[in-house]
Design a protein around this nucleic acid. Structure first.
Length: 589
DNA sequence: CCCCCCCC
């Protein structure tokens, strides 16, 4: 039986070399070879469009190089060029075509020969998308001129725009047009070499992505100009080998801006025309085996979103905000992802949403954890095919599967452990240690005097004493003021089928469970005592799930839990029941 | 030329 050969895009090479963009041309690989004059691995390909050949196709992208070494693009393979850029390399004075994405239409082994004009024009109907009705190649010059053509016509300056993937330390005359995908905060540094400030940003175009660093002078010059999502032309800079320890970008190089650099906002292109963020996902299960402090991308279901909490850094005594998020993916492995400060406060993801995280750092604390850093970005329900696949998996089976968590909390207690109240009473109380677990219980009693008067100055919040002369004294600030801030320390007795435990809720949690602000509650106490009692007891005899992350203390022969975060979200009833059954099994063993 | 990224 005769083989029906794929149809090549006749004439495409001529158009490409004339700077006319051809959409996804179909070409045949005639021969390729490794180029070894630099320390960067490159391949040069000779391609045919059935009419003529061109030997100036260059492959630099590591992903494609890996596929070459796997034998995907052997001699005579017909490929579709999905992304490429034609640029003039001043070094060799002729056009080179940098290929950043291509896929196989038919393998070289199956074709086994160079296709001539007739053979490659035979109405290859099984690939209808590439065949127009009159049998001519679908590929045609696109309506938008290429960046290069635009450059030549003076729209974006005198110099050609080249793909980021063409940037190497051996090619100085580059000009790129890239969209900024993340921007790190400005930071000061000082060491033996001197001192200064630095910031960096990550950007990308159709070909790949790259990190750009700006030190001291350039830091001050460009810090305000650079904004996430905007598109910039960048010309000149020092190209250095990227330290993979600090980024997960698909580039072996990074740019350091210098005094010759020119960075200009590109106003003549819609951001929507620029490529979206590309991820290189690692499965959660595999985080166990990646090096600590490495930078990874993860796609996962948001399984739980903790409250944003305030903590004090022991090192710097600085107050930090953090928020933990539990992530699970198709491996049924779970990992904790910690966001910091503004990002923690602003996180608005919901349980069961899909999250794509780029550039998270792998840490270790009783297992593996993920942490956000300044170049970390995330997208909720990202517009990529994997989102739906993961969502369907989670809805079909993922949500009912028990997970293996990589992030055990303190004392080796699983973050997602559920406890009966009697187990809390049995728990050994040990110093400063915090415990992490979940309980489900009914509020059976509310402490009747939850409001205290706090010093409202400079965020002090210490309890003030009433001088009984219209002034309140703060021992810490050494001041007397007519003003105070009402705040809450709310005690509640919780009950489940095994025991009863007292819990203390501070300000935010107390406001949340009562559904009223401390200030409003105080006003009610002053103006309408019956309504005050009603508001105070609003949560009595209702059932809640509490996520405990606190000390458990002994108090008058009872256990008392202090400072908890708690969930309003319905708990996972199946998981809860399973855990309780497990607990019972352990007891009866 | 930075490379810290925090807490239990």
């Amino acid at each position: 039986m005769a083989v029906t050969y794929p149809q090549l895009s006749h004439g495409a090479l001529q158009q490409i070399l004339a700077d006319q963009k051809v959409n996804r041309p179909i070409l045949q690989i005639i021969v390729y070879k490794q180029m070894s004059q630099s320390d960067q691995l490159k391949y040069r390909f000779q391609m045919s469009d059935g009419v003529e050949t061109c030997s100036n196709f260059v492959i630099i992208l590591p992903e494609l190089i890996q596929r070459i070494s796997k034998g995907e693009f052997e001699k005579f393979t017909v490929v579709e060029l999905k992304a490429y850029t034609c640029t003039v390399n001043p070094g060799i004075g002729r056009e080179i075509i940098v290929v950043s994405d291509m896929s196989v239409v038919m393998s070289g082994a199956k074709i086994g020969k160079r296709l001539d004009k007739q053979e490659s024009n035979g109405g290859f109907l099984s690939n209808a998308g590439n065949t127009s009705l009159n049998g001519k190649p679908r590929a045609e010059p696109s309506k938008t001129a290429s960046p290069m053509a635009a450059a030549k016509s003076g729209v974006s300056g005198p110099q050609s725009v080249c793909p980021i993937s063409a940037i190497t330390p051996y090619f100085n005359a580059w000009k790129i047009r890239a969209r900024v995908t993340s921007k790190a905060n400005k930071r000061n540094w000082s060491n033996a070499r001197g001192e200064g400030c630095v910031f960096s940003f990550d950007c990308m175009d159709e070909s790949t992505e790259i990190r750009v660093n700006a030190f001291t002078k350039e830091c001050d010059k460009y810090y305000d100009l650079i904004e996430v999502n905007k598109v910039y032309y960048i010309t000149k800079g020092t190209v250095k080998t990227a330290n993979k320890k600090f980024s997960n970008l698909a580039n072996d190089y990074e740019i350091t801006l210098n005094s010759d650099s020119v960075v200009e906002l590109c106003a003549d292109i819609e951001v929507s025309e620029m490529p979206k963020i590309r991820y290189r996902f690692v499965q959660i299960k595999d985080l166990e085996s990646v090096a600590l402090q490495s930078v990874v991308d993860v796609l996962a279901v948001v399984k739980n979103v903790d409250e944003c909490m305030s903590i004090t850094s022991k090192k710097t005594q600085k107050e930090l905000k953090k928020r933990d998020i539990a992530l699970v993916d198709k491996t049924s492995y779970e990992v904790r992802f910690t966001l910091w400060n503004e990002v923690a406060e602003q996180f608005d993801g919901q349980t069961n949403q899909i999250i794509a995280i780029k550039n998270a750092v792998v840490g270790e604390f009783n297992g593996r954890t993920l942490s956000g850093v300044s170049s970390t970005t995330y997208q909720l329900d990202p517009d990529i095919p994997e989102t739906n696949i993961l969502k369907e998996w989670f809805e079909r089976e993922g949500q009912t599967l028990s997970t293996n968590t990589l992030s055990k909390s303190y004392e080796g207690v699983r973050d997602n452990e559920w406890k009966f109240l009697s187990q809390i009473n049995e728990q050994t109380v040990n110093g400063d240690n915090r415990s992490y677990f979940n309980i489900r219980a009914r509020v059976v009693q509310t402490g009747r005097n939850p409001i205290y008067k706090a010093c409202g100055q400079n965020g002090c919040l210490k309890k003030v004493t009433d001088n009984n002369n219209g002034f309140y004294h703060c021992a810490k600030c050494q001041t007397d003021s007519t003003q105070f801030e009402p705040r809450l320390i709310l005690s509640m007795a919780l009950s489940d089928c095994t025991s009863e435990v007292w819990i203390t809720l501070f300000q935010e949690q107390a406001e949340k469970i009562l559904g009223i602000s401390a200030k409003e509650l105080h006003e009610l106490q002053e103006s309408n005592p019956p309504e005050f009692v009603k508001a105070l007891t609003a949560s009595e005899f209702k059932e809640y799930s509490f996520r405990i992350g606190s000390k458990v203390e002994q108090y008058m022969d009872e256990s008392r839990i202090k400072s908890v975060a708690f969930n309003y979200t319905p708990i996972d009833a199946i998981k809860h029941a399973k855990q309780l059954i497990k607990n019972i099994a352990e007891w009866t063993d």
